[in-house]
Each structure stands twice: as structure tokens, then as C-alpha cells.
Design a protein around this nucleic acid. Structure first.
Length: 496
RNA sequence: GGCGGCAUGGCCAAGUGGUAAGGCAGAGGAUUGCAAAUCCUUUACCCCCAGUUCGAAUCUGGGUGCCGCCUCCA
């Protein structure tokens, strides 16, 4: 495993080497918990979950920290709108976040600090910046002075001398007037009436947005971390400011590798709250789209590229997943391999794989090593799955020969490898069957009526009165009930 | 205006100098009383123009179209 990654900082693909051999420290920008997460968040966190799983699979000890921004104007607005408190809104959305992530099989971060729990670290960092002359206070606010920090703009490619006038015209607020430079940003905001506030050397107030990440990284992981993650929309100003704060304080590089994921688009436009074109993870999954379908959908594109969300593309992913899932279901009699991702599994030499399977695994790692080319990696899974899937279908049809074939060491090994690689991508088998649909539907026919119809059709078929049999099926279909004949004269049904 | 990115078959999407992965859809075949499901086979010269090269989707220059960031945002 020689992982290469596109580093936003250098705009180049670089070979990944951790600061400390065998260990990787990662900080991932989390969500502002004022609302439910949408597909853009899903895409981002799925991508980083795969990075993390791949590193673990490669034998690294990964420490993954992700924050919750639980102090923010939008949370306050939401609280005001619904007559509750900032805490209540945050708490509710943090729970929702965890539930959504769990459904998508995204591993929980090792530590998830909250802004409200990091005030000491935040105040300490601001004090350091002040002592170094990188910050100044104005009317109860404290700002970071971008002109004092050489290298400001290095992540986003901005040049302060050329950017002067642009930001100015936009919002001529009183806050702008307090700043020495338009790009200066608040480290600490003086308290406003009726808002939550915390004591500080600069008076009561609350932290600015960017400072929490710098403080949390320093507290949880130290001055320099290996990888910093986030959406491409965070490059400027958020990550640029994070770098400025952290590096001004420590004099050391904040993160060696900066990775950014592309946006999810709808009709060619970025999915976002402000445009109102978003679909929440929850709404999508509750509508019957399986979590693994969503996962497959996002992994079929490279993480840095924009991903267009359309019903057609999602449908294609759903069909694709169905096939993969069938093969996976067969493969994981040894269920542990698909549920957990373990570094031991990479030592495939001990698995006694055939040359073909060794080659397949090599193609998978080559793809993943190439800046996490999950689309190419998935192609390997589909190829491994094909024969297993065929076998799964024959077994379902009651083919005794197939049932014996699956015991062959060669096929068993292929199944194990498939399950192992699927786990690296966080794809785990789902057991949804027609039976599940029975529970789900709230149709206009009750189950016993349907069963009666099926029995009537069975008799019609036995009498070779196919016209009558087809009429029954068509009538049921019109009511949203689909019949599927299985081997052995069994007919299953499900609601559409 | 500044910074960055993208343009590959009907759709999604890999491939970044050596003759186009994979998924979906479509077509043909097998199977099925029919249907569904399933299996097999099959479908592209890569936005345009001009260059570099023995050879380019892949490099260079120009053009066209689209997107992101510059304001909260994964």
C-alpha cells in the first residue's frame, strides 16, 4: 500500500507518509448542528470514512477527530424560531447526525469535541495569538490580523494585496469598520443581549467559527496533524483561517495533507441549504433507498469531483447494489469479514489466494492507492461478484449442484476476498427481502386477502387456466401488489 | 474581476502518451405457461480547432460550454 493523495496545499498528488510511522492523525470538519444533514454531508463523510477504513486496512493506527459546531448564529436563529434553546437544538441534531451516520455505516469518530466543551482551549489559543501580536481587540471583539501573518492565502491561492477591494463592497457593516483588513476574521465576538455567552479576558462573548477547529486540533491531536479533511467549500475562508490561527500560534505546520471533497450537485448546481435544493439523508433513506445504495452511488465517482444527484443515477446505483449484495450475501457465511475492517486481513498471503485473486486484490489496492479511486476499485468488486452472484441465483432456484459448488475452496476464497474489499469501502450486505416489503406497506389490501388471491391463482395454474391466473396477477398489480413465482410453486408478493 | 476545477457511449463514471474499466439502461439469445428475476453475448475513437509525437481521450496553444470558492455552507 503506497497511498497517494491530492494535497490541496500543494495542488499535487503526493505519496502519503505519516509523521510517525504506523500512526495517522486525522481531523475532519464536522457539521454545524442547526438542522438535519443532507446528501452533501453524506457524500463527504462517506468519502472520509473510506479513507479511514483504507488506512486501517493498511495497518495504520488511525486517530480520527471530528467536531460539532454547537455555537453558531444559525443554531440561535433556529432556537428562537421554535422557542427553544441553543442546547436543545444542538442536542437534537447531534443525535440525528449520529443516527444518520450509523445508518450509512460510517464509523464514529474516535473523539467528537464540541465547541461548548472546548472553551478553555479556545480562550487559551486566542490569548496566545494576542501575545504574539497576531490578534487585536476592538469593541469587545477580537480579530485575527491577516496582514501580520505571512503566508495567509497559501491554501486557497489568494493574494492579500490583490484582494483588497473585492471583499469590501459586499457587506459594509459596522463589523467591517472595526477590522483592519477586510479578510480579518473574528476569534471572539462580544456578547449580544439575549445570546449565550462565556466569560473571557476580552469580556463576555462567544468564539468565532474558525477558532474552534484550531483549538480542538491542538488539544486533541497536537500542533501538527497528518491529514485535515473537509468539503471543498471550506477551503476559503474556513481552512485558510484555521491554518493562519494555528500556525501563527505554534510556528509549526498545522496539517501535512489537506483533502477536500467535491460538492453534490442538483441540476448542475451545488446542493445547499440556502438554495433549498437539498434532500436530507433521513428523507432519502426513509423513502426506501437503501443506505448501501447511497454509499455505492457516491463511491462511483471520484471524491474530488462534483457528483450530480439524479433519480436516474440513484436508480442505477440501486440496481448495481442489488447485484453486489446478492454476491455478498452468499460470500459472508463468515460474517465477521463484512462487518468489521481489520488490518490483519490485508496480510492476504496467509489466505492462500489463487493468482487470479491476488491480481484482483492488487488491482483494488492500486486503484485505492491512486488518490482513492473508488470507482475503479468498485469495478474489481463487480468482477469478483459476478460468478458468486450467478451462483447465488442458482442456489435460490434450488440448484443442488450450485449449493455444492459454493463450498469449493476457490469460490469460498473469492467470496472472502469480496467481503473483505467491500468492508474496506464500508459496503455491508443487507438482508432486505420481499418479506420486509410486507411489513412496510400500508396497502389497501390486507395480507390474508392477498394470500387468498394467490391460492386462487395457484389453482388456476394447476388447471392450466392461465388466462384466469394472469387476470388475478394483473388485478393485484393494479392495486400495487406484485407477485413473484419462485421455484417449488411458491409465490411471494410485495407492495410497490 | 481574482482563484480553482470539469467536459469520455442513451445515463452515471474510471482511464492522463501506446490503441477506451465498471455500473445502469438498450439490443439479441437462454430460461420461464406468461411475467418478474436470473444467466450469456453485444453497443464509444473520448466538446471544437491548431500543434508536439512513430503514436494523444491522455501533452501544448487557442476556442466553446459548465461548475465551485471569493458571504454561512460537507
Amino acid at each position: 500500500m503506497t497511498l497517494t493523495l491530492t494535497n490541496t496545499l500543494t495542488r499535487q498528488v503526493e505519496t502519503f507518509e505519516p509523521l510517525e510511522p504506523g500512526k495517522v492523525s486525522i481531523y475532519c470538519c464536522g457539521v454545524t448542528v442547526y438542522d438535519l444533514c443532507h446528501l452533501g454531508h453524506a457524500r463527504s463523510y462517506i468519502a472520509w470514512d473510506v479513507l479511514r477504513r483504507y488506512l486501517i486496512w493498511g495497518g495504520y493506527a488511525v486517530t480520527f477527530v471530528q467536531n460539532y459546531t454547537d455555537i453558531d448564529d444559525k443554531i440561535l436563529n433556529r432556537a428562537a424560531a421554535e422557542g427553544s434553546s441553543m442546547e436543545a437544538v444542538s442536542e437534537r441534531n447531534i443525535e440525528a447526525f449520529m443516527a444518520d451516520m450509523a445508518r450509512l455505516n460510517i464509523l464514529p469518530a474516535d473523539r467528537m469535541p464540541r465547541a461548548t466543551g472546548s472553551l478553555d482551549a479556545i480562550r487559551a489559543l486566542i490569548s496566545d495569538l494576542e501575545a504574539k501580536g497576531a490578534a487585536y481587540s476592538a469593541d469587545g471583539d477580537v480579530y485575527f490580523a491577516v496582514m501580520k501573518h505571512a503566508g495567509y492565502g497559501k491554501l486557497s491561492g489568494r493574494d492579500l494585496s490583490e484582494q483588497q477591494d473585492n471583499a469590501a463592497g459586499r457587506v459594509a457593516t459596522e463589523e467591517e469598520a472595526r477590522k483592519q483588513h477586510p479578510f480579518d476574521f473574528a476569534l471572539w465576538k462580544g456578547a449580544k443581549p439575549g445570546e449565550p455567552s462565556w466569560d473571557s479576558p476580552w469580556g463576555a462573548g462567544r468564539p468565532g467559527w474558525h477558532i474552534e477547529c484550531s483549538a480542538m486540533v491542538r488539544e486533541e491531536l497536537g500542533d501538527t496533524i497528518d491529514i485535515h479533511l473537509g468539503g471543498a467549500d471550506l477551503i476559503f475562508p474556513h481552512h485558510e483561517n484555521e491554518i493562519a490561527q494555528s500556525e501563527a500560534a505554534s510556528g509549526r505546520q498545522l496539517a501535512r495533507y489537506w483533502l477536500h471533497n467535491g460538492m453534490v450537485n442538483v441540476g448542475g448546481q451545488k446542493m445547499s441549504k440556502s438554495l433549498g435544493n437539498f434532500t436530507t439523508i433521513r428523507a432519502l433513506l426513509d423513502s426506501g433507498v437503501s443506505p448501501m445504495t447511497l454509499r455505492l452511488f457516491t463511491l462511483q465517482a471520484h471524491y474530488r469531483k462534483p457528483l450530480d444527484f439524479t433519480a436516474e443515477a440513484l436508480e442505477a446505483a440501486a440496481t448495481g447494489w442489488k447485484g453486489l449484495n446478492a454476491a455478498l450475501g452468499l460470500a459472508v457465511a463468515d460474517a465477521t469479514s463484512a462487518e468489521a475492517i481489520t488490518p490483519a486481513r490485508i496480510r492476504g498471503d496467509s489466505l492462500g489466494l489463487s493468482p487470479e485473486l491476488v491480481a484482483a486484490r492488487a488491482r483494488f489496492t492500486a486503484a485505492m492507492d491512486d488518490d482513492l479511486n473508488t470507482a475503479a476499485a468498485l469495478a474489481v468488486l463487480f468482477e469478483l461478484a459476478r460468478p458468486l452472484r450467478a451462483l447465488a441465483n442458482r442456489i435460490e432456484r434450488g440448484d443442488a449442484v450450485a449449493a455444492a459448488e459454493v463450498q469449493q475452496p476457490e469460490l469460498a476464497a473469492q467470496g472472502t476476498l469480496l467481503a473483505e474489499l467491500a468492508a474496506v469501502l464500508g459496503l455491508k450486505p443487507e438482508t432486505a427481502t420481499a418479506a420486509n416489503h410486507r411489513e412496510a406497506g400500508d396497502g389497501n389490501l390486507d395480507a390474508s386477502t392477498i394470500e387468498d388471491q394467490i391460492e386462487a391463482r395457484r389453482q388456476a395454474k394447476a388447471e392450466r387456466d392461465f388466462a384466469a391466473a394472469d387476470r388475478i396477477r394483473n388485478d393485484l398489480a393494479a392495486l400495487g401488489i406484485e407477485l413473484i413465482d419462485k421455484p417449488g410453486g411458491v409465490t411471494e408478493w410485495l407492495r410497490r
